[in-house]
Design a protein around this nucleic acid. Structure first.
Lengths: 200, 200
DNA sequence: GTTAAATTTTGACAGTGTCAAGATTGGTTG
DNA sequence: CAACCAATCTTGACACTGTCAAAATTTAAC
């Protein structure tokens, strides 16, 4: 049952795709509703029938980012099920960093100021972001149970700080401050050590 | 030799002060050149003779932030000189977090996208930010020498990752994601433990 | 006191997000 | 098939933004 909407064909999805492309090429500051409409070939206000706001559009992009991230994490969980937990955790962290590295603009939208401070997250975005964090907490709990992570503090607390560490690294990478691209691999490993609390 | 400039009295400084106030009250998104001019009582384009750009204005604010942070750090170094290094390091970290907590908008400018990605840092800002990071690296070196921090990796590498941890926490706090205000003290302590690599 | 430089203003332009009103199209129902 | 309605798209408009150019004003220097 492929329903082809009215005039355009499937504007909503087309807009999302085009917006994501503009985002990748020029960053958020280069993404305007009008340019987006131009690129797709509709009038300036056409997008407003598919996204209430520019904020809503950004939220939709971020939402897609969370979904993608979610899936790649699930893939790791399944494929690495047999291995030692610690190995798959490392893979987890590397995948997380890789995502931030390859989709910096999307990552910035997912966790950055634009949505969470300047704007307001939509309901579905709020949900999936919470779910995403819960996914992380589940990992932490497992690792605590197996003695790989501290259980001196609660899973929540450990989850917060470890994720802060990971997030901090990603931000440094994305914002390009105090960090060189060549250092990334090395720092990722270092970060894993810190999280796992190993000296070497 | 107090030179009172031409018409206004001391526009440059007045603008900086007013801009910082607007920043605190409404965030970057509420800070426009025109509102700023209005607030100070000059015409829209008057600020452009004291700051080349809006970008230059933001850089000036960030620069002031670095200076303030620098001074509070220096104060710690002096006053805590006699104590054990580790104690003053903890104080250092807490002070850093406190600054981010009390001047979130300024902190966001200092390390955020607006200047480092959307805009371009001015020369003086670039300098003081580097100096600020070197200040941190000096701490790391001292702590490495005293066996408080790992010296498995270089000071640079350890400095990067530890600062990433600290920065990550501050960002979480500022952006208000996955973290409650009440958890701050607890998380700060936790973060110190992680950095110092102590399990409890 | 005249000249030059620094400072401020007014006018203008392109760009932004978004609302209101009208035009067009498609699906649904009699 | 005809009529209606709702979804979709366009045009026009408004307020706001950053910033440039040219004119006006004030101060400093000689």
């Amino acid at each position: 049952m492929t329903k082809k909407p009215y005039h355009h064909g499937d504007l909503g999805e087309t807009l999302l795709l085009a917006a994501t492309e503009i985002l990748r090429e020029t960053g958020v500051e280069g993404l305007s509703m009008r340019k987006l409409a131009d690129k797709v070939g509709v009038s300036r206000t056409a997008p407003y029938h598919h996204f209430k706001d520019k904020n809503a559009l950004l939220c939709a992009i971020a939402e897609a980012g969370f979904k993608q991230q979610w899936q790649s994490v699930e893939a790791i969980i399944e494929s690495h099920n047999k291995e030692a937990k610690q190995d798959s955790f490392e893979k987890y962290v590397l995948t997380y960093i890789e995502f931030a590295d390859q989709h910096p603009e999307t990552y910035d939208l997912m966790f950055g100021r634009d949505i969470w401070k300047s704007g307001t997250p939509t309901e579905p975005l709020l949900e999936i972001s919470k779910a995403s964090f819960r996914q992380w907490l589940n990992w932490v709990e497992e690792l605590q149970a197996q003695g790989i992570l501290t259980d001196v503090s609660s899973a929540l607390r450990v989850g917060q700080t470890t994720w802060a560490t990971l997030h901090g690294l990603c931000r440094l990478l994305i914002d390009g401050i105090y960090i060189n691209r060549d250092d990334l691999d090395d720092m990722a490993k270092q970060t894993i050590k810190i999280i796992l609390n190993k000296q070497n």
